[in-house]
Amino acid sequence: MEQAEQLTFDFESVQAHITSESREDIKLALGAFSGPLDLLLFLIKQEQANIFDIPIARITDEYLKYIRRMKNLDISLAADFLVMAATLIEIKSKMLLPREISGEAEDEIEDPRQELIDRLLEHQKFKNAAEMLYERVTVEQAVFHRGRIESDEKNLETNASVFDLLTVFQKTLGRHKEEIQMEIEREEMSLAEMLKHIRAKISKVKEINLLEFFAAMRTRQELVLAFIAVLELVRTDDIKLLQRKTFGDIILKKI
């Protein structure tokens, strides 16, 4: 409670204030502000304030007033709004401090609001970009394309997901389990060697059937190495994985 008093932000009073508001209104107000930055931009506009010279005390008060009204927020949203409230109060208190004290001879005195201003401007840009995307998608939805010609054999490359990859891996691993292994001393392969092996192979044959490739591995350790190597090569964009048809075999292909 004492802490809340210090911050001039009292949770108890939040509860008390809402009685006057209808629930509908609060929800409506929220819809427009998808986040605290939106709310701030709205308040700055409402107060007809200059974004580069925000009257921080007034805006902070308005902001807190709004927050008090927002009771029916879900928790994570509320937390974001509270972080901003704390930021505003911090800036407000910094503004109250005499500036000369912190001002070094050469150093330019940083406006405590600068970081917030930058964030607001950046946010505004992306809001406008979102609007542009909205317009684009609306126009695009007015363009119709011919319906799909049903064919599983069509030569479209579907990207195989990690899960497809894992399934193949599991399949092969399962098979290896059943085989009785003869333990023979052998030089163990390193990941670097495996990478080299795959690179060499793929530049020779262009395409490798993943299932066959995994099946050709002699030990579990090699198999694991092969799996990691494939992931690594995909990550580094050396190869791509594709499936020619749904549930078809996964093919390694050189990029």
């Binding site: 998808s34 986040g35 939106d38 974001d80 964030r119 950046e122 946010h123 992306f126 970009a129 979102a130």
Partner: peptide, 29 residues
């Protein structure tokens, strides 16, 4: 939704973008 479009805008312009980077610009999870 507006939230999805905003997030998409951030990702489109900042890609590859991480969750903390999106949070920084949008101010919301």
């Amino acid at each position: 939704s507006l939230a999805a479009l905003e997030t998409l805008a951030v990702i489109a312009y900042k890609q590859p973008a991480t969750v903390p980077e999106i949070l920084e610009i949008r101010g919301v999870q």
